[in-house]
Nucleic acid binder design. Sequence first.
DNA 1: CCCGATGATGCTCATATGAGCACGGCAGCC
DNA 2: GGCTGCCGTGCTCATATGAGCATCATCGGG
Lengths: 318, 318
Amino acid sequence: MVRVMSDESDELLSVRVAELYYDENKTQDEIGALLGISRWKAGRLLTQARDSGIVRIEIVHPRARRLGLERELQARFALTDAVIVPDPESEADSTTRVAQAAADYLAGLRPVPRVLGVSWGRTLNEVADALPDGWATGVTVVQINGGVSLNRRPGGAATMAATIAQRGGGQAVLLPSPAILERIETKRAIEADRTVADVLAQAAAASAYLYSAGVADASSVLVESGYLTPDDVTELVRKGAVGDVVGRYIDADGNIADPGLDERTVGLGLSELRSAATAIFVVAGSSKHDVARAVVTSGLCTVLVSDESTARTLLEDR
Amino acid sequence: MVRVMSDESDELLSVRVAELYYDENKTQDEIGALLGISRWKAGRLLTQARDSGIVRIEIVHPRARRLGLERELQARFALTDAVIVPDPESEADSTTRVAQAAADYLAGLRPVPRVLGVSWGRTLNEVADALPDGWATGVTVVQINGGVSLNRRPGGAATMAATIAQRGGGQAVLLPSPAILERIETKRAIEADRTVADVLAQAAAASAYLYSAGVADASSVLVESGYLTPDDVTELVRKGAVGDVVGRYIDADGNIADPGLDERTVGLGLSELRSAATAIFVVAGSSKHDVARAVVTSGLCTVLVSDESTARTLLEDR
DNA sequence: CCCGATGATGCTCATATGAGCACGGCAGCC
DNA sequence: GGCTGCCGTGCTCATATGAGCATCATCGGG
């Protein structure tokens, strides 16, 4: 009767088929009989309905992941792994979910790391809290950047490392040094000190690293802790800094933003991080999109744990 | 290791399985191998994920229907059929969707009605517009309540009936009478007139009816058309009226709200409607929830076409 | 008017899935 | 300590589904 019904009528049929299949869970055969079409046509309409987005299948769970994005990211940035959690509807607390995911990933990591190098920060605190007891057996947790002395708040760097170690049935090795020193001579001297040098050596030999990143603005933990003044940060931004990784400020290409400052920063170098077999980078929130891009594109990490919006931003052609 | 993992860990596994199955579309077998569980366990976790609402399957289409609600409504109110469309996200234009659905239903109705009795109103105008050409062959469309003379706007009662008839390859029979008369004697006289009596007789013999309902407030078409004053309506509400059906005001139990007024109303009686084999009631929008309830519970219709929120309201225990 | 290309349809067959069942471990109870 | 009933597990088998292929109608170009 009507000729070109492939547009309108076929779509309507698709809807009908999809309803019967998913809402009523009839079999494709029954649907065929019911609508007077063959089983195969019903099946094809169903695929069509799924492809065209008429049928939307969503996995709703705080710990759900976005596997599609993960694959794309792995391919695009040559990562060993990527873990992407859906954005929460109630914005902002995506850090918690990402931290949870990072904890899950760490707990499931095989082989279980013997020595784990960690940085510190708000995000990592949450990761530590989310780690289950017994996530590893006899792990040594080594701090890879300084800052231990300036922990004012509870749940600071030391506590965090201790938590991770304790739940992994091992011990924490703290880096007894400020993050950034005022004079380069002091930095050289402290690095030469046995207690510091030993820790740095252990850090360099870690079997895996876990770290996050900070944004280059006044809200940074480095500013809050008094290592840098807001003016210092402004100057860094002028030099191209987008954020910091293990205490070191990098520009959009992943290079050191201010070599002078970097010389005064105690901790693992970025090159060690780049050559690591396993470097897990945890980052959440839209303010960190720029640092995240810098880290991921410059090969600082092998594993990315983040949220959906960050992932999408990374995948956009820039 | 951990004992009671059925809560937490099983749910997480479910999520993982669901992701692999729906996002990655792996087979249950593959998933089993991947997660180190048996194919059957994977399958069971999947069912669990679906049941517990972790997996949400939604059919997104303007013409989609809510088959679950439809079944419940049919069972609860002994309807021959119910058609429920999803609520639109962008509130308010649910009338259009419902009208579309009603048109679809009418077009698919078997046996094709020979004589269709219709009321009029905003909703029915939309239904008429949504009807496809050739929805029937040689149908006679009869108006079942008066009002033809007072159509100011285009797309009024007459046009609507004509549209339905034309697209169904038949003719319209209009009821040449006001909806409500001022004196009961006039009403008796006009009903006795051959031209009116004939139409009413045809209306009573219709093989199917299609009608909507109005709310008992000042926005009613009957007020707009000048048959009633806002004060009349206030008085009706005082008497328990919740809305009107084919021009007759009913209370929450489906009884005539004001017998005096009803005596002066020209058109098919409610008892004829109640005894009809097919009475399709089209209603949309939250303002009509009360009338809808009255109509459905008092058995005025055999088929309900409406929206999701109305359906849910009807199914609530009141 | 005929021919080949294209796309839809319905088939065969291999595979994936779900229902029902038997087994084994575990907790509670005697 | 042994018994019993229950739950979780993995099996068998019937059924549902999807991939690939032959067929057929339709359409545009010689």
